[in-house]
Amino acid sequence: MANRKYTEDHEWVEVDGDSGVIGISEYAQEQLGDVVFVELPEVGKVLDRGDEAAVVESVKAAAEVYAPVSGEVVEVNDDLNGDPSLVNSDPFGDGWFAKLKLSDADELDELMDEDGYKKFVEGLG
């Protein structure tokens, strides 16, 4: 997936034109364990890069998910309300969190690509 970019905090953004879908990585879902609740942002909310975009609750703990890029929330994945475990079973697909209308496409250049992220995760031991 050439157009998926990653943060060091294990969020991803997959860009299509001027919008981007965001979620958390396979590594992140595995670290969290069973996800039991996801608090999604409201549609219309404007996020700066690094703002808290969502909260993921696993059985044990809550984790904050940060916006990998800046933009306005135009859609959220309501399926997560009924089945939060989609984050575990399909983190890059049905477990997506929100779609943003990007406000600064240049920010993407500062994120890791697939290979860069893979090396980053390997480096975490």
Partner: peptide
């Protein structure tokens, strides 16, 4: 993402 669960042994 930040999670307390990622503390290594």
């Amino acid at each position: 993402m930040t999670a307390a669960a990622s503390t290594p042994a």
